[in-house]
Design a protein around this nucleic acid. Sequence first.
DNA 1: AATGCACGCAACCGCTCGATA
DNA 2: GTATCGAGCGGTTGCGTGCAT
Length: 281
Amino acid sequence: MGRSPCCSKEGLNKGAWTALEDKILTEYINTHGEGKWRHLPKRAGLKRCGKSCRLRWLNYLRPGIKRGNITNDEEELIIRLHNLLGNRWSLIAGRLPGRTDNEIKNYWNTNIGRKLQNGVARSTLNTVQQDRNLKNKEWHHYPNYSPDHKVSCLVQTKATRWTKDITPQNEGIKNNVIGDNKIVSPSSENNKDPVLDFMADLEMDGNFFSELLKMDLPESSCHNENKIVEDNGNPSTVDKRYLSPKSSSDTTQFPWGDSLYDTNFDFLPVTTFMESGFDWL
DNA sequence: AATGCACGCAACCGCTCGATA
DNA sequence: GTATCGAGCGGTTGCGTGCAT
């Protein structure tokens, strides 16, 4: 049983793509459009796995892909979104015009994540290598963003489906199935992932950055740990403290230490980003 | 010049999900 | 209800490159 492999692995090219392969794939997709990845290699005459074709197209050949040189604005946005969403790279990438999930994931792992792991956020750089990695980034802007912080305030590192809502007010409503787990969520009147709601509601327009900065990130709700009841029935505690809106009367405090009203934070105006000519997704 | 090492990135892999028959 | 397909996601791997010794 089980599913058949996406393609027969025999006789397929692996590794780096050649210019000719890129050309063939691009021309095929330009003619026939995206999709049907499983059958694409055979029809296009490529000795590649369909998944490989899809990845190559989405991460490299697709029009509008921006490569290299993650700007400071983009980096700050990545950090903010990562705080909010965890390792949901596709969601993060969806809010960064021209960037792919793979690129952002790589950038995080090789730059931001390492900085945080090294505790750079709270210390002075003293090595050439660190200096090189930092690219003159002013990490003292994130005095509270640390690996410790990641443990304590990160939403979740992997997309999780929740099957049952057992909030106190809803406990007993066992058929409230929304995923694989049962979650106690302050915003459980909505059966959808609140993070996705947040992303869905966040329009990628000229107000995006300002909207993001104005987001009601519930630092204060960090006190409210959500409880997950796994399929085996064992409850476990999971940090989902950013999944629900908090009272509008609360003081907004970003987990990395910035206050929404922190005048010391030098996030550039949205117009700077907008006027740079990006193609918004 | 030769060698070793670290890093960054492209690509691969395994898994999951929704749709469909 | 089950099997399969098509697609997507996130973690990991491995290769090419640049730098240090």
